[in-house]
Amino acid sequence: MSERTAVIASRVGLHARPAGIFVAAVGELPLEVTIAMAGEPADDAMDASSILSIMSLGASNGDTVVLRAEGEGADEALDSLVKILETDLDAE
């Protein structure tokens, strides 16, 4: 199991356009990725390819989230997703 933390950089938090961009990127991966707020048990992590799950997570600007994935290429995949979360997507 690979694990990464990321600090949400988008000013609006992880919803609206930033959430859409993130979910689309997860959807391109051949892996199952989960997302949870930092400090929450891994069992409560949500499907990162679901925009509805992401929205219900309610991560705001500055919040730390934990991404997890398993399998070949998981480390590289998570690194690329962290990069997306740590960019202010709303500014672009």
Binding site: A24, M46, D47, S50, L52, S53
Partner: peptide, 8 residues
């Protein structure tokens, strides 16, 4: 994205 959302 919501239309084909895995959770839904």
């Amino acid at each position: 994205l919501m239309a084909n959302d895995p959770m839904l």
